[in-house]
Design a protein around this nucleic acid. Structure first.
Lengths: 241, 241
DNA sequence: CCAAAAGTGTTGGGGCTACACCCATGA
DNA sequence: TCATGGGTGTAGCCCCAACACTTTTGG
């Protein structure tokens, strides 16, 4: 950050790419758009776009998120910078530096098709084919990141509506980690972590028909979890189902 | 990443900024350069510079690291992307998007002054004054990041020379976390984490004069630690000194 | 001999897994 | 009344913080 000379640097195009996850029926899904132009016409890609002159990457990412998902209350959604991808050959036509974000939304509101993309869809994570550009790598990085962050942050509540049951919260962990968790022990871990969730007094919700109605909780004030809620590893024997 | 139009986007300058930490005499230090030009002339700043046309941010960061530290074997040093700072007003003259990196070096090789900066120095972390641009925030983010990563990765070995004692490794944790650790329990945790360190057969080293010679270890192959080496929290009572 | 650091042993408490068991609801 | 999921209880195991203690060096 020294030696400023307006002729000494090369201009770059700067974009944002979004890895937007949601949970539907216990299944992790990822928002993708189908490209209409070359290169990679017909391929699926992560949604994204160019920064406008007065936007930060965060602002641009939130704008793109609103355009692509059609959600109105984008302000409250979880949006987090993942990393920046800057390999010189990542776009075959020009030099593009892309700031990637991970977003988590409570439930796929509807199949979207907004913005300028050919079409958009929530595809089950893992079933998407090869993506355009280096988006396979970005998506893999994003999935790994949220798996790690579930252990030590309250990130999981971002997948849930404002009021949720502990069973729904557990499904978030099970879907992202692709593993089974003991409901009883999960409950105690969550309630034993100060500030993770707070119970909504009195109310309860029927959980899809069968079973006892479950108490409702809201996200607590904490963002980091102490102690962390560690993912079971091979060698440990937790996990039914 | 759709709707490409070479006239629809604004060109940005892209730079890298480096938060380079080292450990000297049990004290965490940060590499800073003194700015020679406006704005912020005379202020300290993080080292960094512009991307060259065919460089990725990682390549540029490693090049800058070599220039600023004067180290020859930059290839083996730990370098990790932190995040990207893109607020429109972060540089008063022009639109600059900066990819920040965190680097860890075993020991300050010498006071450096390379590159084009006025001068460079290793200042004790926390004693640097206000930095130029948004570098205070970048530095705070970098310090927080390495503190978190010490818990679940083998990052601490990057602060150490190729062969090190467990006491030296413990000093890394104590300096970054600014806390005391029980040497006996630290030893058992490290040795009980598969792949963290491997002992160098036979040899040992005198640790600064007094005390029993300590066995030497190298970094093991593991990058992530299972179980994690958690930082003691208030409420827990660990920690002498 | 004393101080300092490495390294080993031990113990008591806490946490956590795995499971049994009861509760409330829809079909 | 049965299946299903919520919620509570608990026994045993394992981990681990908090020491005490021995070993090996320099002064």
């Amino acid at each position: 950050m020294h030696g400023y000379d307006r002729h000494a640097y090369e201009p770059f195009a700067v974009t944002v790419d979004l890895a937007v996850f949601t949970l539907r029926a216990g299944r992790l899904r990822i928002l993708l758009v189908e490209r209409g132009e070359e290169p990679y016409a017909g391929s699926w890609a992560l949604p994204g776009g160019f920064l406008k002159p007065d936007e930060s990457a965060e602002t641009a990412a939130r704008r793109e998120l609103a355009e692509e998902t059609g959600l109105a209350d984008v302000a409250g959604l979880h949006l987090e910078q993942l990393r920046t991808y800057s390999e010189p050959d990542r776009d075959p036509r020009m030099r593009v530096v892309s700031v990637a974000f991970t977003a988590l939304v409570p439930d796929a509101p509807q199949a979207v098709g907004g913005g300028d993309a050919a079409q958009a869809a929530w595809l089950p994570f893992g079933e998407q084919g090869p993506l355009a550009f280096d988006h396979d790598r970005i998506l893999a990085d994003a999935h790994h990141r949220i798996g790690v962050e579930l252990e030590r942050t309250s990130l999981a509540t971002a997948f849930c509506p404002p009021e949720f049951t502990l069973g729904e919260l557990r499904q978030v962990y099970e879907a992202v980690w692709d593993t089974g968790l003991d409901p009883a022990n999960f409950r105690r871990k969550v309630l034993g972590t100060p500030g993770f969730v707070t119970q909504v007094p009195g109310e309860s919700r029927l959980t899809g028909g069968r079973g006892k109605p479950a108490a409702l909780y809201r996200a607590g004030g904490a963002t980091t979890l102490h102690p962390p809620l560690l993912k079971p590893r091979p060698g440990s024997t937790e996990g039914p189902s």
